[in-house]
Design a protein around this nucleic acid. Structure first.
Length: 426
RNA sequence: GCGUGGUUGGUGAAGUGGUUAACACGGUGGAUUGUGGUUCCAUUAUGCGUGGGUUCGAUUCCCACAUCGCGCCCCA
């Protein structure tokens, strides 16, 4: 038996209904926020993902899906959305748009060569947002508000917003130096991973789960003490605007995010779901004022975030939140061979009039057909026998109340408009 | 990449070195119920992840591989 590749999954059945529901919800939400849709290639020149990300590059490249195409070009399946959108922003000269800032959203599959784990796949779907061209802290708050509102709409109650500021380049460098200085005498006490982090990415030591309780972790220097005037001011404004939106948050100095390109605001949204394990961060993002420049564009500030679908759906499951159910307006039952084409044509006609309609294709008996109608969660059932066909009068039954009606064929649409409209309004 | 536990039908699963792979749900057909959602009957895996080995014989033992789960690394 051929199997799907490791770390991938098929979408079908009820999972498909959920995914489409989430996507439609996000689509509608983005229209309200007035962001524009962008779609970039699933593969890009490898170089794109290896630039602007700083010194963790060697690690990052090991976790991407790389391949050489027939023209000997090094290509990489995108591991995230930001780089591609930034590339597109530069290449299409969106910085020249008369309308600024440029606010974009995207949705699609991403690829990382990692060991699959709970809520983590090699092919996974992300939704994200990137805003270019404004340094206003209000934009930071707006971007944070998007996942918060989205999760609220879904009914996730136990969410926690953690924010932090890494400051501008100057602040960040000063802080980094202070961290190195602080941990130097304690190096022996740190775990092996943290020793590596000390060399590669000292900020991430603060994130460590193993050394969490060490004394030298607790009294480590705080980024807030190293923010210069501009950075401090920006961060205060972000909080001010979040307050204005009534979004609860927590300033958490340990939120540092993985990559080096972040400046000023960084944030994560966690789900505090029972039994959800270590993978409880639902989304993350921040401001990147130098990324566009690093990738070869004009100096342009940016803010963005991304959220994963897989982990979100796991969280919704844990919280037992039900999304859309399968629903059908009408189920058509032909009672015998002779009326099948009549029933078939009726089905088609009703579909073109805006109803969701299905019918029996299995030659089931009446009992089996009612069962099928229940399975499909049909609101109404139309039973067609020879009598119905000859008189052109249809037997239609409300599947919940079991009320039965006889309706002339030509009056069917207005009958349904009336009755099914009611259902939708309930 | 490292460690660890799984892999039996449409689903949840029990089980054993030797030909009936339990039970439940679901599916289909039939009977009964005035046109279904009740009850009853029948039927539903020549098959136990893949490949090799041990054996007279393996779904059951051993090895390898694949894959899923959990933890670690990493998390853009």
């Amino acid at each position: 038996m051929l199997q799907k590749p490791k770390g991938t999954y098929d979408v079908y059945g009820s999972y498909g209904i959920k995914i489409l529901y989430l996507e439609n919800l996000l689509h509608a939400l983005m229209e309200k926020y007035h962001y524009e849709y962008v779609r970039t290639p699933i593969f890009e020149a490898s170089e794109l993902f290896h630039r602007g990300v700083g010194e963790t590059t060697d690690i990052v490249s090991k976790e991407t899906y790389d391949f050489v195409d027939r023209g000997d070009r090094n290509m990489t399946l995108r591991p995230e959305g930001t780089a591609g959108v930034v590339r597109s922003y530069i290449e299409n000269k969106m910085y020249g748009n008369p309308s600024q800032p440029v606010k974009t959203w995207y949705i699609g599959p991403m690829y990382r060569y990692e060991r699959p784990q709970s809520g983590r796949f090699r092919e996974f779907y992300q939704f994200g947002v990137e805003v270019f061209g404004s340094e206003d802290p209000m934009i930071d708050a707006e971007v944070i508000s998007i996942p918060v509102n989205f999760y609220r709409m879904l009914g996730l109650k136990e969410i926690k917003v953690n924010i932090n500021s890494l400051g501008d380049q100057e602040s960040r460098n000063a802080y980094r130096a202070a961290l190195l200085e602080h941990f130097k005498p304690h190096l022996d006490a740190l775990c092996e991973d943290c020793k590596t982090r000390y060399l590669k990415n000292p900020l991430r030591i603060l994130d460590c789960k193993v050394d969490h309780d060490l004394e030298c972790m607790k009294n480590a220097p705080k980024i807030s003490d190293y923010l210069n005037e501009t950075s401090r001011h920006h961060f205060e404004k972000v909080q001010h605007y979040l307050d204005a939106l009534n979004i609860p948050y927590q300033v958490n100095p340990n939120v540092v995010r993985g990559l080096d390109y972040y400046t000023h605001t960084v944030f994560e949204v966690e789900a505090n779901v029972q039994g959800f394990g270590s993978q409880n961060v639902l989304c993350g993002g921040g401001r990147y004022n130098h990324l566009v420049e690093n990738i070869g564009g004009p100096s342009t500030p940016g803010v963005g975030f991304a959220l994963g679908f897989e982990r979100l759906l796991t969280a919704l499951e844990f919280e037992q939140i039900e999304l859309e159910k399968e629903h059908l307006d009408l189920y058509v039952i032909p009672m015998e061979e002779a009326v099948k084409s009549y029933a078939f044509a009726l089905t088609q006609d009703l579909r073109m009039n805006g109803f969701s309609v299905d019918m029996d294709y299995m030659n089931r008996n009446l009992k089996g057909n009612f069962k099928q109608a229940d399975r499909l969660n049909a609101s109404y059932v139309i039973i067609i026998g020879t009598t119905e066909m000859e008189n052109d009068i249809l037997t239609i039954k409300n599947n919940q109340t079991q009320e039965e009606y006889k309706v002339k064929h030509e009056e069917l649409i207005s009958f349904l408009d009336e009755h099914i409209e009611e259902e939708h309004n309930e």
